[in-house]
Amino acid sequence: MITRLVHKSLADRRRGLLGWVTGIVGLVAIQMAVYPTVRDSASDWGQATESFPEVMKDIFRITDYTSETGYLSTELLSFMVPFIFMGLGASWGSRLVAEDEEAGTADILFALPLRRRSILGARAAAGLTALLLCAGVFVISLAVGARVLDMSIPLGHFVNAGLMVFEVGLVSFGIAALVGTSSGHRGVGLGVAMGSTIALFVFYSLAPLVAIFERINPYNPMQWTLGSDPLLEGFHADTFAYVISWLALGLVATARMLDRRDIAG
């Protein structure tokens, strides 16, 4: 019956979830609506982006801006949608247990004959479902947009893109879960998760320019998740497995932390 907790978590946050979904759909719609203008004046845009400093092109991974894949990669996948999923993951991860503790509802919930890790697991399942749902919405938005604009990108590549931003969400979700649950404070979890994932993103972005960032880049989760072009390349099962493994380890550590501490009342 622990699934009741999963349903409740999703139902409680359905308005917030609707907001995230609307944001994703809106962003994809706006960016794709602009693409015909870019396509119709490809040479002008090509010259313009060619004139960008190489540093900037490296940071934003701009390659072949006027092509369908190049445009979508630059406008949606280089930072905008990944940032949305960072926020989404941090938001859901930070409140797994801390939200109940801060609201005072944890006393009755954790006094039920349930293992603490079962409650944590149910909350985490709800968070991961929300992330997956948003990634699905992103994929559908891209597919619909592509059909409307008569793009030739296969659906499988959009699924790859969805999985990529889902992975980004998992990174911030894992950090937020660990910090938020260990501290019992949602704000701490949210702040640390957002701060650290943005820092990781900056290291990843500047890796082509800064030697030390380049050296640590293979260990940077943002390189694992954002380091390939999902609209051109196939699905990277190895990086996905990497992220999932680290998330599993993080959640086990989170459960152990929760088992060892007092529940705030």
């Binding site: 409680d12 005072g104 509802t105 006393d107 039920l112 004959p113 293992r115 009342g265």
Partner: peptide
């Protein structure tokens, strides 16, 4: 015991009550 067996047949009303 983390399994919560001890709480199975216990009714608890906390001093500071917060509900959903």
């Amino acid at each position: 015991d983390p399994s919560g067996l001890a709480r199975r047949e216990v009714g608890y009303l906390p001093g500071t009550l917060a509900l959903y």
